[in-house]
Amino acid sequence: MLNYRTPAVLAGLLLFLIAAGVSAHGVSGADARFLNDAEGFHFVVYLYLGAKHMVTGYDHILFLFGVIFYLSNLRTVALYVSLFALGHSITLIAGVLMDLHVNVYIIDAIIGVSVIYKAFDNLGGFERLFGVKANNRSAVFIFGLFHGLGLATKLQELQLSEQGLFANLLSFNLGVEIGQLLALMYLLLLLKLIQRFTSTTMVGISINFLIMTGGFALTAYQLSLYFSS
């Protein structure tokens, strides 16, 4: 049952999502210029850029929110987030070092699909429609691989200097994890807040429906960019 506070909470969530969406995703203009010109090892710079990418990366955050939405305790949250981090670290580092070039729109579209997948799974969709409970751990790990590939393509758009590449990459990756933890803290707080005001299944359905809608918007947007590029 919806109570009178629900609309306020949903509005707050929507505002949060919009605020996250306003700041440009990817590595923005001035940052890109710096990275193009910089040579050698810049620990704090790459750390900051990694964290910023994660905190402002609404596609990663939507996915993360979907992942933790129905987790029952902090230990499970830590497990899933670690699996996600392991997945994206592997492809981020391997992608840049092996100079793998994947179309950025396709990757971002897949990331959008991961958001749809997770929200639909939260609604119990796969169990009901296909009679199978998706293996959540491997799903989170595999989508983590795709998210990392997305991070790698964005770093590769810049001409990174060979000098200090590996150390810079590790700094960026560390930054990504810090940013993810920061985002996670806000998301957990938000979840707590939602549950404090209302603990009905209707709210869960509404929010996951919104996440799913966001996933479709991301996917459609990226695919149309791919076809027009």
């Binding site: 129905y70 639909f120 429609l129 603990s199 299944t201 996951n208």
Partner: peptide, 15 residues
């Protein structure tokens, strides 16, 4: 710290 996971009908899910 969890809301109960929803159980929707096939029709509701597809919709």
């Amino acid at each position: 710290m969890s809301t109960p996971q929803p159980s929707l009908s096939t029709r509701q899910l597809v919709l």
